[in-house]
Write a protein that binds this DNA or RNA. Structure first.
Lengths: 189, 189
DNA sequence: CGTTCAGTTGACTAAGGTCAATTCCCGTGG
DNA sequence: CCACGGGAATTGACCTTAGTCAACTGAACG
């Protein structure tokens, strides 16, 4: 059984029938490293669950790439703004490692929720988690200095430094790779 | 008729009955300047529509106050993260001017949507707009330099500078009041 | 091997922050 | 009506931090 279904089941026990319906709508994507899940300007037509691998979300900008967020196994990826409004996305989402993503189209999601009301709970939960995530992220960017953001990340998610190319970590912290490198040599002894 | 109901009606025409139900749940708050709508640590129990006045949302921090966002007439205010999850809010929302807010409690909102399915559309719309707003805000903070954020704000919302104390504008731009003052003298001639 | 790209290091620069002094504005009370 | 007080905004001098640019190192991969 796919990890993602297992995890959904753990949080929201579903009937066998609902479960089957969900599985039948799942589209499995294998993304190579650097392959895009969502490109700026295109409408985000589906929401994905990362089964395996990692991805990053970033805003394209003439000078620098602003990497907003990382996603790992069991995360939900997509631009909710674009997905819900059906307007072109202003963000890009791209695989960092070779990844496997289970994707559900908007139409399927709507049909599923209509036919299986228990899934509404799940969808609400996902939206809620997304709000919490963005609020925390915004707080970090507004309240803390670059150096403090680095220290916090090191404290809370040290494995990110092992797994993600440092240029993307720098971009996530909204600093240059050079500055990240200096922090590392300064604080990692 | 209250402005907010008028505006809802313009976007999502509602039956007279739905309309009445909505009105009956509305709680009207008169907030004095500097009075809090939501305080950090408390659960955001209702979502408000600003009928009149202006408010700001900020993250409290030992050193500086990070003012994340402004809200004016016809805006929706509240922390969706806290409202949906029923966890303590990490943000504060406070009136800048004397304001009138039409508030709806979580329980009322849920009941209303259940009894009047046409309101689901409205609630989806509000959530969608919120996602769009936060994505744009994040983009601005990540992609643009302080100076560019200032210029963009001046271009797009010049009246904010008339209406909002500059210290809050500075905080919104994530710069110090001194720096904002220098930009102003530099660019406003 | 040699090419390439990520990461590091160093010298320098510039942007914005800090701190302190001053001015401006506005409400209050004599 | 004017004078005063207090907070907001401005201004100036100085400092700190991260950005820039360029050179170098090192690992990965053909």
């Amino acid at each position: 059984m796919k990890r993602i279904f297992y995890n959904i089941h753990k949080i929201f026990p579903l009937t066998e029938e609902t479960f089957e319906a969900l599985k039948n709508c799942a589209r499995i994507l294998h993304l190579q490293k650097n392959e895009f899940f969502l490109t700026e300007g295109e409408v985000c037509s589906s929401i994905g669950f990362i089964e395996k691998g990692s991805m990053r979300l970033f805003y394209n900008s003439p000078d620098r790439e602003a990497c907003n967020d990382f996603f790992f196994e069991n995360s939900v990826v997509g631009s909710f703004a674009s997905f819900l409004s059906e307007m072109p996305s202003i963000v890009n989402i791209v695989a960092i490692e070779n990844s496997e993503v289970i994707a559900f189209s908007k139409k399927d999601i709507n049909d599923l929720i209509e036919k299986h009301p228990s899934l509404k709970q799940l969808s609400d939960f996902i939206i809620q988690e997304h709000f919490i995530r963005t609020e925390k992220r915004e707080e970090a960017l507004l309240k803390f200095s670059p150096e403090l953001r680095f220290k916090n990340l090191l404290e809370e998610h040290p494995k990110i430094f092992k797994r993600i190319p440092l240029q993307y970590v720098a971009s996530y912290l909204n600093i240059t790779p050079e500055t990240l490198s200096r922090y590392r040599s300064r604080f990692l002894v």
